[in-house]
Every structure is written in structure tokens, then in C-alpha cells.
């Protein structure tokens, strides 16, 4: 068996010292370190330093500072996450059927799943058109205090062409067609408007299929 040089042993032990102090070395490693320590003053000093560091780091946070686990809040977080993810799901599924239903006038499909108090009626802000491969159908809900011209301005800023006026008693809801080159681009646009105070919710309903598939 190859014998290790003193320097090699010293360097190997150097790397193991923190775990010698925290007690997670194997029995063989611990013996290896202890054999070396008995004749190495510098590592004995290092052990003392590491024990001081460990003691300082291990000092407990005062108990009252540790909040109790809040399962209710965790569940609210999971609900919010599920809601966010479900809003994106239709993009990846067969959304064509939903689009067809939408533009056939069956707009009263129900409200946002997490907003049961709102009426299940939506307005179409843009006239249904032939559509292209890159149009997405999006339902937008504005906060009630957003003025009409401000709503128009927001719709135009995200690329909605010729948006019709939306009306509503509490919040203002409408379905629009959004041009976007890709899902990522769409998510960037919807994420951007969702972050605005004027927008209560954004839901992607469908991908609008092209009428003409030949180019």
C-alpha cells in the first residue's frame, strides 16, 4: 500500500477539519484526522478556531422569532399557483374547439375559475376575424375604476387593433385577440399587463387557428 507523505496527510486533514468539528466524518476519517492532530500544532489551532466559528453560528435564533408553520397560507399559495398554471394550460392543449365556440357566440362559458362571484358574461372587444397562426384569444378583466380611454390605451399598447369599448358594472371584462409570434412572446405580453394595477386578471383562452393554412 502506498504511504502518503506528511504534506499530503496534512493537506487531506486540512480539508476534513470542518466536518471533524461538526461530527459527520466516518469513523475511519475521524481516526485519520486524530492521528494527525496529535502531532500537528497548526491544525490543533485550526480546530479551536473552527469550534469557535461553529459555536457562534450555532447560537439559536430566539424561539419567538421562529414563526409557526401556516398551513392555510401554504394552501392559498398552492391555489394561486394552480390558478396561474391552469390559465396557461389551454395554450398547450387543443384550444381550437374553444376558439370555435367563442366565435360562434357562445361566450358565456363561465367565469374565471377562481372568481365565482363575477357574472358569466363577457364582451368581445375586437370583431372576430379570419385570424392567423399567431393570434391568441385572451380574456382580460380591468379594475372597475379604470377609465374607458385608459382601457383603450392599454389594449392598444399590447397590440389589440381597433378595440371596441368595454362596459361593465363592477369590473370590465372583454375578450380580445392578441397577436404574438410565440407562446413565450404571448406570456411576456400577458405577464406584463397582468402586473399592472389596472388589470385584475388575464386568461388565455385559446389559440386562434388560421383560416388559410397554405402560404
Amino acid at each position: 500500500m502506498k504511504t502518503q507523505s506528511t504534506k499530503t496527510i496534512h493537506d487531506t486533514v486540512e480539508g476534513l477539519l470542518p466536518w471533524y468539528v461538526n461530527g459527520t466524518l466516518s469513523a475511519d476519517e475521524r481516526n485519520y484526522v486524530e492521528e494527525h492532530l496529535s502531532g500537528c500544532d497548526s491544525h490543533q489551532v485550526a480546530i479551536r478556531e473552527l469550534r469557535q466559528i461553529a459555536a457562534a453560528v450555532q447560537e439559536e435564533t430566539p424561539t419567538p422569532l421562529v414563526t409557526e408553520p401556516d398551513v392555510e397560507r401554504l394552501n392559498a399559495l398552492l391555489d394561486a399557483d394552480a390558478s396561474t398554471r391552469s390559465r396557461r394550460t389551454p395554450l398547450y392543449l387543443a384550444a381550437a374547439a374553444l376558439t370555435a365556440a367563442l366565435f360562434a357566440g357562445l361566450l358565456a362559458l363561465g367565469d374565471f375559475s377562481d372568481r365565482q362571484a363575477a357574472p358569466a358574461v363577457f364582451e368581445t372587444a375586437t370583431a372576430p376575424d379570419a385570424g392567423t397562426l399567431t393570434d391568441y384569444v385572451v380574456r382580460i378583466e380591468f379594475a372597475a375604476n379604470v377609465a374607458a380611454d385608459e382601457r383603450q390605451s392599454i389594449l392598444k399598447s399590447i397590440g389589440v387593433r381597433d378595440a371596441a369599448e368595454l362596459s361593465g358594472s363592477t369590473a370590465v371584462r372583454g375578450v380580445v385577440s392578441l397577436p404574438a409570434a410565440s407562446v413565450a412572446e404571448l406570456e411576456a405580453v400577458t405577464g406584463g399587463i397582468e402586473a399592472r394595477n389596472e388589470i385584475v386578471a388575464v386568461e388565455v383562452l385559446a389559440v386562434q387557428l388560421p383560416v388559410h393554412t397554405e402560404r
Partner: peptide
């Protein structure tokens, strides 16, 4: 958002040293 003076003392190091170590960490 807590007062370091409130934490209980550890062994093997003076309170002042421990404060310095925590500051160093």
C-alpha cells in the same frame, strides 16, 4: 430585525468574539 444581545451565550468563545465571528460570517 433582532437584537444580537438577546441570543443565548455559546461555549468556548467570549461573547465579544462570537459577535465578531457572526459579523465576519
Amino acid at each position: 430585525d433582532f437584537d444580537p444581545d438577546d441570543v443565548p451565550a455559546a461555549e468556548d468563545a467570549s461573547p465579544e468574539d462570537r459577535d465578531w465571528i457572526r459579523h465576519g460570517v
